[in-house]
Lab assay of single mutants.
Amino acid sequence: MAAGGDHGSPDSYRSPLASRYASPEMCFVFSDRYKFRTWRQLWLWLAEAEQTLGLPITDEQIQEMKSNLENIDFKMAAEEEKRLRHDVMAHVHTFGHCCPKAAGIIHLGATSCYVGDNTDLIILRNALDLLLPKLARVISRLADFAKERASLPTLGFTHFQPAQLTTVGKRCCLWIQDLCMDLQNLKRVRDDLRFRGVKGTTGTQASFLQLFEGDDHKVEQLDKMVTEKAGFKRAFIITGQTYTRKVDIEVLSVLASLGASVHKICTDIRLLANLKEMEEPFEKQQIGSSAMPYKRNPMRSERCCSLARHLMTLVMDPLQTASVQWFERTLDDSANRRICLAEAFLTADTILNTLQNISEGLVVYPKVIERRIRQELPFMATENIIMAMVKAGGSRQDCHEKIRVLSQQAASVVKQEGGDNDLIERIQVDAYFSPIHSQLDHLLDPSSFTGRASQQVQRFLEEEVYPLLKPYESVMKVKAELCL
């Protein structure tokens, strides 16, 4: 049975990233139509530049190519590739079939990587351009969430054990800070992308030097003109047959890092959902379990974690691919890159769409948070109580021993009897502590235990987050809708 299948058929496997999760716009960027249309555009740009620099290419040939950029006979191309065992030459023939007058000058002087690699770089750039505003929107939604809850005390956790208090907004800023680093890295790697350009079979530009009869300047002009037509500021000066596969490492490393950030955020949300302090959106008709109707599973956060793990592992592909590119190139890269580049971007696209949807509907339960604080705060307040007693004339050592005994009794009630923490009640009825009984409410005010959390939130948002989001103001209103 021949390899390949009808990918629109229910009898043929289709990647869930495309069929179930990723956005239509990201799927289109990695589609065959987008790819092969870009090949034709690159052939047109090459012909236009070659004509401008004096090669015998007519206006009629150029116009014929322009008129057929979208006229792609995919069936013919597939048949040609089956016959020739070469995808680029299959599309040269297919393009030439609908451009008979231009057929002889299509791909003039070029090698397969002229269309293959340059198209990949265009796709990487455009895919990054799709991700950047999506990530900015996630940051914006979380920034709104953090600002609104900047002063809401909550129990902090280290080692997932109760620690000092923080605020809900401050905790959210930990998430935002990681995503801001990801946004900066995505922008950097996007701006650092260079075009492969017009380089020939081993990167020496020998074929173009021959076409222009040894004119170095025209060869350099050709490279520059096509690079500018493709919208790049610069091209690699040095290439082998391909652009260095280190570029793929750079791009997928940034995406993998984004995956790590999203995994951490969504894990926190899942843990908070278990504590009943916070939940992701839950639709009115949504079913959490087929057997347990009360369940409210954090399905979206779980999906993000599941896909983020996949995204983090994909960076190993370009690392290994770059390491086995012998001399000017081997074909070890080809099949692998067809999979890992598309999957990385479709996965990143999915987790950003999902995280935006989550961040637009996060639900906080202040009463649950308050109750958990009441359970733990008495123990945390013991040092403040000791200091207040010393100020009232008591002995630190005597007070410490009193607190120690009462704390152990209260802990026994919590752990052995399943009761509430009654340390404060014990202190309130103990005559030894009568000098500070009137101060206990103040000493137990949760806001006095959150330090500068709310001020940190305000400063972080104003100095770091809002300036970073400013270039994306025009796209901030787009909502994230999930079908599944």
Rank of each mutant, 00 (worst) to 15 (best):
K479M: 14
D117A: 00
R20I: 03
I106V: 12
L174F: 15
I139N: 15
K134G: 12
H310C: 07
D6M: 14
G197L: 00
R329H: 06
L53T: 09
E25M: 09
G288N: 02
I339A: 08
M225N: 07
E25A: 14
F232E: 02
A308M: 01
S261E: 03
T158I: 00
T239M: 04
F157L: 06
N357I: 07
Y365V: 07
D430M: 08
G4D: 14
S474E: 15
E250D: 11
T58Y: 10
N68L: 05
I339P: 02
F236W: 13
A102E: 05
I373S: 04
R309I: 04
L355Q: 07
P318R: 01
M26V: 07
T58F: 10
L174N: 15
L311R: 01
E60W: 06
A308S: 11
Q356P: 02
A77V: 12
Y472V: 11
P435N: 07
R83M: 10
I249V: 10
D182W: 03
T154L: 08
G288K: 03
L484I: 09
R300H: 14
K479T: 14
P471A: 15
Q205T: 06
T313D: 03
F460T: 05
C98D: 11
L131F: 11
Q61R: 06
C266T: 14
E376D: 09
E370Y: 11
P10K: 15
Q286F: 00
K66C: 10
L193Q: 13
M181Q: 10
I62V: 10
E48W: 01
C304V: 12
V364Q: 03
Q177L: 15
M387S: 14
G104Y: 08
D11L: 09
T321S: 08
V364S: 05
T166V: 08
H263G: 07
P435E: 08
L121D: 00
A348H: 03
S23H: 13
L183M: 09
L174V: 14
T204S: 14
E81F: 00
A342M: 10
K101Q: 07
A47M: 05
A49W: 03
G169W: 03
K295P: 01
N357S: 13
Y294D: 01
P10S: 15
W43T: 01
K66W: 11
V429N: 13
D182E: 02
E228V: 08
E79V: 09
L222A: 09
A411G: 14
L346Q: 11
L255F: 11
A411N: 07
R270F: 04
A256W: 00
A163S: 14
A410E: 03
Q63T: 10
S15N: 14
T202N: 13
G361T: 13
C99L: 14
E283D: 14
N353H: 05
T382L: 04
K82Q: 11
P298W: 01
E250Y: 12
W43G: 00
K233Q: 07
F160V: 03
L252G: 13
Q439W: 05
S323T: 04
A344W: 01
S434A: 11
L55Y: 06
T111E: 00
F236Y: 10
S257N: 08
E425W: 13
V413H: 13
L128M: 11
I123K: 06
K187F: 10
V88L: 08
C305R: 02
R300S: 14
D398G: 12
V247C: 15
R85Q: 05
E228C: 10
E228A: 09
A480I: 15
L152C: 10
M476A: 15
D215W: 07
F433G: 04
E250H: 07
W43S: 03
G393M: 04
K477E: 15
V262D: 02
D248P: 03
K246C: 03
Y21W: 15
H7R: 12
G4H: 15
A480W: 15
S31C: 10
R171G: 00
R194P: 10
R234W: 08
E462K: 13
M312Q: 08
Q439A: 15
T239W: 03
S112R: 00
L121W: 01
V429S: 11
V198I: 13
Q458M: 14
R338K: 05
C113T: 05
E417Q: 14
L131T: 08
L209P: 00
E70Q: 10
Y34V: 06
D333R: 00
A49P: 00
T167I: 04
